[in-house]
């Protein structure tokens, strides 16, 4: 449980959470927002694995993608809510 919460926290405060949210805010379509977040999560995992897919921890990657998708969707929602035209 602690491992799970720590991984989620790391993803929220890492690229999937922050950049996922920012990229999500660039589109009104939540599907695009979610995809952007997921892509960021995969890229981050790849970078931290020193560009070797063999070093990617599947558990961390799944959590990061989940957080990235959520962040992207929330970003899109903010965009919809936060623009008037």
């Amino acid at each position: 449980m602690l491992e799970f919460l720590g991984t989620v926290g790391g993803a929220v405060l890492g690229l999937p959470g922050v950049l996922g949210l920012a990229l999500g805010m660039m589109t009104r379509n939540p599907i695009f927002g979610g995809v952007f977040g997921a892509v960021v999560a995969v890229i981050q995992a790849f970078i931290f694995a020193k560009f070797d897919f063999g070093n990617i921890a599947v558990f961390d990657l799944v959590i990061a993608i989940g957080v990235g998708v959520l962040a992207g969707v929330v970003g899109s929602a903010i965009r919809v809510k936060g623009t008037v035209a």
Binding site: G9, G10, G14, F48
Partner: peptide
């Protein structure tokens, strides 16, 4: 590394 550090900090709440 940032991602591992944040994870460790959250787990240290225990």
């Amino acid at each position: 590394e940032w991602n591992h550090k944040v994870k460790a900090k959250i787990m240290a709440v225990k």
